[in-house]
Amino acid sequence: MGKVIVVTSGKGGVGKTTSTANLGTALALLGKSVVLVDADVGLRNLDIVMGLESRVVYTSMDVIEKQCELNKALVRDRRVDGLMLLAASQKNNKDDMQPEQMKAICDKLRTTYDFTLVDSPAGIERGFRNASAGADEAIVVTTPDVSAIRDADRIIGLLQNVEIEPINLVINRFSPQLVGNGSMMDQADVLDILNIDLIGVVPEDSGVITSTNRGIPLVYEDGSPGAQAYMRIARRLTGQRIPIPDLEQKGLFSSIVNWFTKNR
């Protein structure tokens, strides 16, 4: 029996879709069977980021309306074995879907695939409720800025209310330079506020923009720091224990000061 994981954030633009695409591809590269579900009905993006937009024929809405079988609506990614996409309808809106219908789809996918990653839309309304309806676990994506963190905090509260467990945190667009000169929150600050388990830190990587435009997820190019971070998170999702590397570039002097203040 596989796992259904909702990827969500509250705030828009923090990297939910990028994370879903990269984690799904990374899991498939690790030999898992994966299906990516775009739950952003009316504003679908995941097919573009995956480079599969030209091959989408049926959507989850067609499955719900019994226009086609679930298996027929899944688009196979030919670049890697065992990676499928279930696209969202672009012409409907979020109220056309019921949380129970999404749950039924997730329940079916869970029996066949190791991982079902549901890409949640931004917000806390129907779209989010649809996306999380069938989820066993959650990945909350945030960037290290106060507004994203407040929204992540709100989402974590809502996920805890419906008893989705565990809730893992991905800190995205982390910039060691900005943390180093004190203008960005560091990992410890973020974790202190959100108080959930950290599953990975993805550094700011300009390669994300080109990879999105080309429809090739970053993890296909091993070299970039973002790709390596996503590969590590995927390995952690499969149960491997990999330490989170310290991305924070601190000078020797501030490290010493830090050590003293922490061990007071």
Partner: peptide, 13 residues
């Protein structure tokens, strides 16, 4: 009386 809340109050709560 007093009420004890055994958890964190998150955004929106």
């Amino acid at each position: 009386p007093s009420r004890i809340v055994p958890c964190t109050i998150r955004s929106g709560q």
